[in-house]
Amino acid sequence: MPSVTRQPFRTAVLVLVWGWLLFLVLAPNLLVVGASVMTRDPGTFIALPLNLDAYRQLFDPLYLEVFLHSLYMAAMTTLVCLLVGYPFAWALSKLGKQRQLLLIFLLIVPFWTNSLVRTYALKMLLATNGLINSALMSLGWIDEPIQMLYTEGAVIIGLVYLLLPFMILPLYSVFDDLRQELLMASHDLGAGRLATFIHVIVPLTLPGVLAGVMLVLLPAMGLFFVPDILGGSRNLLVGNVIKNQFLDARNWPFGAAASIVLTITMAILMLAHRLSKQRLGEGGAG
Protein backbone atom coordinates (compact mmCIF):
# COMPACT_ATOMS: atom_id res chain seq x y z
CA MET A 1 0.00 0.00 0.00
CA PRO A 2 1.77 3.22 -1.10
CA SER A 3 1.64 5.78 1.65
CA VAL A 4 1.93 9.54 1.49
CA THR A 5 5.26 9.63 3.30
CA ARG A 6 6.90 7.04 1.08
CA GLN A 7 6.07 8.87 -2.14
CA PRO A 8 6.52 12.58 -1.59
CA PHE A 9 7.05 13.27 -5.30
CA ARG A 10 3.85 11.49 -6.31
CA THR A 11 1.92 13.40 -3.67
CA ALA A 12 3.38 16.73 -4.73
CA VAL A 13 2.52 16.11 -8.40
CA LEU A 14 -1.04 15.07 -7.64
CA VAL A 15 -1.63 18.02 -5.30
CA LEU A 16 -0.31 20.49 -7.90
CA VAL A 17 -2.29 19.03 -10.79
CA TRP A 18 -5.52 18.63 -8.87
CA GLY A 19 -5.10 22.02 -7.24
CA TRP A 20 -4.68 23.79 -10.56
CA LEU A 21 -7.63 22.11 -12.23
CA LEU A 22 -9.99 22.43 -9.27
CA PHE A 23 -9.16 26.10 -8.76
CA LEU A 24 -9.02 27.22 -12.40
CA VAL A 25 -11.42 24.85 -14.15
CA LEU A 26 -13.98 23.39 -11.76
CA ALA A 27 -14.44 26.38 -9.44
CA PRO A 28 -14.88 28.97 -12.23
CA ASN A 29 -17.39 26.79 -14.04
CA LEU A 30 -19.41 26.22 -10.88
CA LEU A 31 -19.22 29.96 -10.30
CA VAL A 32 -20.82 30.63 -13.69
CA VAL A 33 -23.60 28.15 -12.96
CA GLY A 34 -24.13 29.86 -9.60
CA ALA A 35 -24.02 33.36 -11.07
CA SER A 36 -26.68 32.48 -13.62
CA VAL A 37 -29.30 31.87 -10.91
CA MET A 38 -28.40 34.84 -8.73
CA THR A 39 -29.43 38.47 -8.81
CA ARG A 40 -27.48 41.27 -10.42
CA ASP A 41 -25.72 43.58 -7.99
CA PRO A 42 -23.78 46.73 -8.90
CA GLY A 43 -21.29 46.36 -6.03
CA THR A 44 -20.48 42.68 -5.74
CA PHE A 45 -21.64 41.72 -9.28
CA ILE A 46 -23.92 38.98 -7.94
CA ALA A 47 -26.09 38.68 -4.87
CA LEU A 48 -28.88 36.62 -3.39
CA PRO A 49 -31.79 35.85 -3.75
CA LEU A 50 -31.67 32.95 -6.16
CA ASN A 51 -33.98 33.20 -9.14
CA LEU A 52 -34.32 32.32 -12.79
CA ASP A 53 -34.70 35.91 -14.03
CA ALA A 54 -31.58 35.70 -16.17
CA TYR A 55 -32.94 32.71 -18.05
CA ARG A 56 -36.29 34.42 -18.43
CA GLN A 57 -34.49 37.45 -19.84
CA LEU A 58 -33.04 35.25 -22.57
CA PHE A 59 -36.56 35.00 -23.97
CA ASP A 60 -37.00 38.74 -24.04
CA PRO A 61 -37.93 39.42 -27.71
CA LEU A 62 -34.95 41.77 -28.12
CA TYR A 63 -32.39 39.18 -27.04
CA LEU A 64 -34.25 36.27 -28.53
CA GLU A 65 -33.90 37.97 -31.89
CA VAL A 66 -30.15 38.40 -31.42
CA PHE A 67 -29.83 34.76 -30.36
CA LEU A 68 -31.80 33.46 -33.29
CA HIS A 69 -29.88 35.66 -35.72
CA SER A 70 -26.60 34.46 -34.21
CA LEU A 71 -27.77 30.86 -34.43
CA TYR A 72 -28.75 31.42 -38.05
CA MET A 73 -25.33 32.88 -38.94
CA ALA A 74 -23.58 30.05 -37.08
CA ALA A 75 -25.74 27.48 -38.89
CA MET A 76 -24.98 29.06 -42.27
CA THR A 77 -21.27 29.10 -41.40
CA THR A 78 -21.43 25.42 -40.49
CA LEU A 79 -23.32 24.58 -43.66
CA VAL A 80 -20.84 26.42 -45.89
CA CYS A 81 -17.92 24.79 -44.07
CA LEU A 82 -19.54 21.39 -44.56
CA LEU A 83 -20.28 21.95 -48.26
CA VAL A 84 -16.74 23.20 -48.89
CA GLY A 85 -15.01 20.83 -46.49
CA TYR A 86 -16.66 17.52 -47.37
CA PRO A 87 -15.47 17.31 -51.00
CA PHE A 88 -12.18 18.86 -49.90
CA ALA A 89 -11.49 16.14 -47.32
CA TRP A 90 -12.56 13.49 -49.82
CA ALA A 91 -10.23 14.80 -52.53
CA LEU A 92 -7.42 15.14 -50.00
CA SER A 93 -7.76 11.53 -48.82
CA LYS A 94 -7.24 10.27 -52.38
CA LEU A 95 -3.81 11.86 -52.80
CA GLY A 96 -0.48 10.19 -52.07
CA LYS A 97 0.45 9.89 -48.38
CA GLN A 98 3.42 12.26 -48.53
CA ARG A 99 1.41 14.96 -50.32
CA GLN A 100 -1.46 14.54 -47.83
CA LEU A 101 0.83 15.31 -44.91
CA LEU A 102 2.13 18.46 -46.59
CA LEU A 103 -1.38 19.68 -47.41
CA ILE A 104 -2.61 18.98 -43.87
CA PHE A 105 0.30 21.01 -42.56
CA LEU A 106 -0.68 23.87 -44.90
CA LEU A 107 -4.19 23.63 -43.51
CA ILE A 108 -2.98 23.91 -39.92
CA VAL A 109 -0.62 26.84 -40.51
CA PRO A 110 -3.40 29.47 -40.56
CA PHE A 111 -4.80 27.96 -37.35
CA TRP A 112 -1.58 28.86 -35.55
CA THR A 113 -1.50 32.40 -36.87
CA ASN A 114 -3.30 35.28 -35.27
CA SER A 115 -7.03 35.04 -36.05
CA LEU A 116 -7.53 38.74 -35.43
CA VAL A 117 -4.91 39.61 -38.03
CA ARG A 118 -6.50 37.24 -40.53
CA THR A 119 -9.94 38.78 -39.95
CA TYR A 120 -8.39 42.18 -40.55
CA ALA A 121 -6.85 40.87 -43.79
CA LEU A 122 -10.34 39.89 -44.95
CA LYS A 123 -11.53 43.39 -44.18
CA MET A 124 -8.96 44.76 -46.63
CA LEU A 125 -10.39 42.53 -49.34
CA LEU A 126 -14.07 43.14 -48.62
CA ALA A 127 -14.08 46.91 -48.04
CA THR A 128 -16.14 49.14 -50.33
CA ASN A 129 -12.99 50.52 -51.97
CA GLY A 130 -11.17 47.26 -51.19
CA LEU A 131 -9.34 44.91 -53.49
CA ILE A 132 -12.27 42.74 -54.59
CA ASN A 133 -14.38 45.73 -55.56
CA SER A 134 -11.52 47.48 -57.37
CA ALA A 135 -10.66 44.27 -59.21
CA LEU A 136 -14.27 43.71 -60.31
CA MET A 137 -14.60 47.35 -61.36
CA SER A 138 -11.39 47.41 -63.36
CA LEU A 139 -12.56 44.24 -65.10
CA GLY A 140 -15.74 46.11 -65.94
CA TRP A 141 -17.96 43.49 -64.34
CA ILE A 142 -19.58 46.00 -62.02
CA ASP A 143 -20.01 49.79 -62.21
CA GLU A 144 -20.61 50.53 -58.56
CA PRO A 145 -18.75 48.96 -55.65
CA ILE A 146 -20.78 46.26 -53.91
CA GLN A 147 -21.40 46.76 -50.22
CA MET A 148 -19.80 43.65 -48.75
CA LEU A 149 -18.38 44.88 -45.45
CA TYR A 150 -20.75 45.29 -42.49
CA THR A 151 -23.21 42.74 -43.82
CA GLU A 152 -24.40 39.40 -42.57
CA GLY A 153 -22.54 37.80 -45.47
CA ALA A 154 -19.24 39.36 -44.38
CA VAL A 155 -19.64 37.88 -40.88
CA ILE A 156 -20.36 34.44 -42.34
CA ILE A 157 -17.38 34.68 -44.71
CA GLY A 158 -15.17 35.70 -41.80
CA LEU A 159 -16.36 32.81 -39.63
CA VAL A 160 -15.96 30.30 -42.48
CA TYR A 161 -12.48 31.61 -43.14
CA LEU A 162 -11.44 31.13 -39.51
CA LEU A 163 -13.23 27.84 -38.85
CA LEU A 164 -12.93 25.84 -42.09
CA PRO A 165 -9.87 23.83 -40.92
CA PHE A 166 -11.87 22.64 -37.89
CA MET A 167 -14.44 21.12 -40.24
CA ILE A 168 -11.92 19.62 -42.62
CA LEU A 169 -9.67 17.87 -40.09
CA PRO A 170 -12.28 15.51 -38.56
CA LEU A 171 -13.76 14.87 -42.02
CA TYR A 172 -10.32 14.05 -43.37
CA SER A 173 -9.76 11.57 -40.57
CA VAL A 174 -12.97 9.63 -41.37
CA PHE A 175 -12.25 9.65 -45.11
CA ASP A 176 -8.74 8.45 -44.37
CA ASP A 177 -10.23 5.47 -42.50
CA LEU A 178 -12.77 4.72 -45.22
CA ARG A 179 -11.86 1.31 -46.62
CA GLN A 180 -11.84 1.05 -50.39
CA GLU A 181 -13.02 -2.58 -50.17
CA LEU A 182 -16.36 -1.38 -48.80
CA LEU A 183 -16.87 0.87 -51.80
CA MET A 184 -15.87 -1.92 -54.15
CA ALA A 185 -18.18 -4.35 -52.37
CA SER A 186 -21.03 -1.89 -52.75
CA HIS A 187 -20.23 -1.59 -56.43
CA ASP A 188 -20.03 -5.37 -56.86
CA LEU A 189 -23.40 -5.75 -55.23
CA GLY A 190 -24.84 -3.60 -57.97
CA ALA A 191 -25.10 -0.22 -56.26
CA GLY A 192 -24.58 2.81 -58.46
CA ARG A 193 -22.43 5.75 -57.47
CA LEU A 194 -25.29 7.65 -55.87
CA ALA A 195 -26.52 4.60 -53.96
CA THR A 196 -23.00 3.89 -52.71
CA PHE A 197 -22.67 7.49 -51.61
CA ILE A 198 -25.98 7.53 -49.73
CA HIS A 199 -25.84 4.05 -48.20
CA VAL A 200 -22.12 3.56 -47.60
CA ILE A 201 -20.11 6.76 -47.66
CA VAL A 202 -22.50 9.09 -45.83
CA PRO A 203 -23.18 6.76 -42.86
CA LEU A 204 -19.48 5.93 -42.51
CA THR A 205 -18.42 9.57 -42.52
CA LEU A 206 -21.26 10.77 -40.27
CA PRO A 207 -19.16 10.83 -37.05
CA GLY A 208 -16.68 13.10 -38.84
CA VAL A 209 -19.50 15.35 -39.99
CA LEU A 210 -20.86 15.65 -36.46
CA ALA A 211 -17.40 16.27 -34.98
CA GLY A 212 -16.86 19.00 -37.55
CA VAL A 213 -20.26 20.54 -36.88
CA MET A 214 -19.44 20.58 -33.18
CA LEU A 215 -16.07 22.24 -33.73
CA VAL A 216 -17.53 24.91 -36.04
CA LEU A 217 -21.02 25.68 -34.75
CA LEU A 218 -20.02 26.66 -31.23
CA PRO A 219 -17.07 28.93 -31.96
CA ALA A 220 -19.24 30.46 -34.68
CA MET A 221 -21.50 31.74 -31.93
CA GLY A 222 -18.66 32.93 -29.70
CA LEU A 223 -16.03 34.68 -31.84
CA PHE A 224 -17.17 38.20 -30.99
CA PHE A 225 -14.34 39.98 -32.76
CA VAL A 226 -15.51 38.82 -36.20
CA PRO A 227 -18.73 40.88 -36.20
CA ASP A 228 -16.87 43.69 -34.44
CA ILE A 229 -14.49 43.95 -37.39
CA LEU A 230 -16.61 42.77 -40.34
CA GLY A 231 -20.25 42.94 -39.35
CA GLY A 232 -21.23 46.31 -38.00
CA SER A 233 -23.66 46.65 -35.12
CA ARG A 234 -26.59 44.74 -36.63
CA ASN A 235 -24.97 41.33 -36.95
CA LEU A 236 -24.16 40.33 -33.38
CA LEU A 237 -23.20 36.89 -32.13
CA VAL A 238 -24.11 35.33 -28.80
CA GLY A 239 -20.46 36.01 -27.96
CA ASN A 240 -21.01 39.76 -28.38
CA VAL A 241 -24.01 39.61 -26.04
CA ILE A 242 -22.04 37.70 -23.41
CA LYS A 243 -19.13 40.11 -23.73
CA ASN A 244 -21.35 43.19 -23.46
CA GLN A 245 -23.22 41.80 -20.50
CA PHE A 246 -20.07 40.87 -18.61
CA LEU A 247 -17.74 43.75 -19.46
CA ASP A 248 -20.00 46.74 -20.18
CA ALA A 249 -23.43 46.21 -18.62
CA ARG A 250 -21.93 44.26 -15.68
CA ASN A 251 -24.93 41.99 -15.73
CA TRP A 252 -23.29 38.74 -14.69
CA PRO A 253 -26.39 36.58 -14.22
CA PHE A 254 -27.52 37.26 -17.77
CA GLY A 255 -24.06 36.78 -19.31
CA ALA A 256 -23.65 33.56 -17.32
CA ALA A 257 -27.07 32.23 -18.38
CA ALA A 258 -26.22 32.93 -22.03
CA SER A 259 -22.93 31.07 -21.73
CA ILE A 260 -24.66 28.12 -20.07
CA VAL A 261 -27.00 27.90 -23.05
CA LEU A 262 -23.87 27.66 -25.24
CA THR A 263 -22.43 24.94 -23.01
CA ILE A 264 -25.66 22.94 -23.09
CA THR A 265 -25.70 23.17 -26.88
CA MET A 266 -22.16 21.80 -26.87
CA ALA A 267 -23.15 18.92 -24.58
CA ILE A 268 -26.06 17.97 -26.86
CA LEU A 269 -23.81 17.96 -29.92
CA MET A 270 -21.20 15.84 -28.13
CA LEU A 271 -23.88 13.35 -27.14
CA ALA A 272 -25.07 13.13 -30.76
CA HIS A 273 -21.49 12.55 -31.86
CA ARG A 274 -21.01 9.74 -29.36
CA LEU A 275 -24.31 8.09 -30.26
CA SER A 276 -23.50 8.16 -33.98
CA LYS A 277 -20.15 6.52 -33.30
CA GLN A 278 -21.76 3.85 -31.11
CA ARG A 279 -24.35 3.06 -33.75
CA LEU A 280 -21.61 2.74 -36.31
CA GLY A 281 -19.71 0.37 -34.01
CA GLU A 282 -22.78 -1.86 -33.58
CA GLY A 283 -23.41 -1.89 -37.31
CA GLY A 284 -19.85 -2.95 -37.98
CA ALA A 285 -20.02 -5.78 -35.48
CA GLY A 286 -23.32 -7.14 -36.75
Partner: peptide
Protein backbone atom coordinates in the same frame (compact mmCIF):
# COMPACT_ATOMS: atom_id res chain seq x y z
CA UNK B 1 -8.97 18.76 -19.32
CA UNK B 2 -11.50 17.76 -21.96
CA UNK B 3 -13.86 20.52 -20.82
CA UNK B 4 -11.08 23.11 -21.21
CA UNK B 5 -10.35 21.88 -24.73
CA UNK B 6 -13.93 21.65 -25.91
CA UNK B 7 -15.80 24.47 -24.25
CA UNK B 8 -16.13 27.66 -26.29
CA UNK B 9 -13.32 30.07 -25.46
CA UNK B 10 -15.76 32.71 -24.33
CA UNK B 11 -17.21 30.39 -21.68
CA UNK B 12 -13.72 29.77 -20.29
CA UNK B 13 -13.07 33.51 -20.44
CA UNK B 14 -16.08 34.61 -18.38
CA UNK B 15 -15.66 31.81 -15.86
CA UNK B 16 -12.06 32.90 -15.20
CA UNK B 17 -13.03 36.57 -15.03
CA UNK B 18 -15.71 35.74 -12.46
CA UNK B 19 -13.20 33.76 -10.40
Amino acid sequence: LFVVMMSPEIVLAISLLAL
